[in-house]
Amino acid sequence: MNIDPALKALSAALAGTGPAVEIAPDGTPGPVTSAGLAPETAAVVRTSGSTGTPKATMLGIDALAASSMATAMRLQGEGQWLLTLSPNYVAGLQVLVRSLYAGTRPWVMDLSAGFTPEAFTTAAGELTDRFRLVSLVPTQLHRLLTDPSPQTVQVLRRFDTILLGGARMSDDLRVAARKHSLRIVRTYGMSETCGGCVYDGVPLDGVQLRLDAGRISIGGDVLASGYLDNPELTDAHFSTGPDKDGTAGRWFLTEDLGEMHDGVLTVSGRADDVLITGGVKISAAAVAAAVETVPGVETALVAGVEDPEWGTRVGAAVVGPADDELICRTVREALGPAAVPRILVRLDALPLLANGKPDRLAVARALREAG
Rank of each mutant, 00 (worst) to 15 (best):
V97D: 00
G304H: 10
A102T: 04
A102I: 02
E369A: 14
H237W: 00
R346L: 00
S34Q: 14
Y227T: 11
A91G: 06
P54I: 01
A91C: 04
T152Y: 02
A72M: 03
A38V: 13
R157T: 05
T33P: 07
A354N: 10
T47L: 05
A285D: 10
I61A: 01
P29C: 00
A9Q: 05
F238L: 01
V90C: 04
A123V: 08
S86F: 02
D171F: 01
R143D: 01
A167N: 11
D205C: 00
V45M: 03
A349D: 15
V155R: 01
N230V: 13
L133R: 12
A123I: 04
L211N: 07
R168M: 09
K8S: 07
L75R: 15
D200A: 00
G246L: 06
G249Y: 01
T277H: 01
A70K: 13
T146D: 09
G189Y: 08
L75Q: 12
K179F: 00
F131H: 15
V44M: 09
A65F: 07
V32C: 07
E22M: 10
I23L: 08
L144V: 11
V185F: 00
L14D: 14
G18W: 10
L96W: 08
K357C: 04
R46V: 02
S181K: 01
S112E: 12
L326W: 02
R346I: 06
L127P: 09
V95E: 03
T47E: 14
L83P: 07
Q140N: 08
G258W: 03
G125R: 11
G60Q: 09
T293D: 14
V280L: 03
P106G: 08
I327E: 10
V297Q: 05
L233A: 15
V45F: 01
A15R: 14
L361M: 13
G30L: 04
Y227D: 01
E309R: 06
P231V: 12
G103T: 09
P321F: 12
R183L: 02
A72N: 03
A176Q: 14
D307R: 06
D324K: 03
E126P: 05
V155T: 13
G92Y: 07
L347D: 01
R132V: 02
A15K: 14
